[in-house]
Amino acid sequence: MARTLTPKRKVAFTVLAWVLGLLIFFPILWTVLTSFKTEGEAIANPPSFLFFDWTLENYTEVQERSNYLRHVINSVVISFGSTAIGLLIAVPAAWAMAFSPTKRTKGILMWMLSTKMLPAVGVMMPIYLIFRDLGLLDTLLGLTIVMTMVNLPIMVWMLYTYFKEIPGDILEAARMDGAQLGQEILYVLAPMAVPGIASTCLLNIILAWNEAFWTLNLTAADAAPLTAFIASYSSPEGLFWAKLSAASTMAIAPILILGWFSQRQLVRGLTFGAVK
């Protein structure tokens, strides 16, 4: 069906797709534009799209007023930290399930998936109380632990589907050639596993960066990552849309770019390998 478009149709479809695409993207574009306006222009009526005095002052002011950098660092520590810890735990598990599966492997995978379906409100109260008693509320350590646990099932699953695609025969072949276990892993398996591990990390960073239930409920001022920091702009006192936009633009830009680069791997991770 795709090959046989008449030129007229192709133009029509192109126009329609671009209009819809731009419409969907517009809120993001508008946020970026607003971040370069003054507060006055941000709420001007009628709004100006491009012909305003472009300014960078919101970006510097966001930092001066609220120590924005600290929240960026929190986000980075939590998302990268949970990804690194998660990887250390998940790689061996996925490896074992992919290369020496037993009768129970499938059951374990399914059970891991089911923990992901547990609504957060179902375990919120105990986690909150345990964290309070252990002094983990509003700490980076506490939030990193939570984020690791929340995303661990997805990591195991995604790694499993990648490892599963590494042909077992290649190991036999390497063994026949007299490779030691260490060499086997280093020269034969690692190069084949790295792309899968990289995609898993990417998805995990994106998910942890954007997570907004635990970050809002378990942090206050100290450990608040960007999701929780941005939420503080919801207070009705005063209109700070230009600053909100600047803070938002910086918060979403890195993840948006990461996401754009990893579309295909995301599909696999987000559907637990059901759609590739």
Binding site: I24, F25, N210, T227, I230, A251, I255
Partner: peptide, 16 residues
């Protein structure tokens, strides 16, 4: 353009 909103954190999209 179409997939972009999925990568916007919930608090940002809600406030925007």
């Amino acid at each position: 353009l179409v997939i972009a909103p999925f990568f916007v954190m919930p608090t940002v999209s809600a406030l925007v």
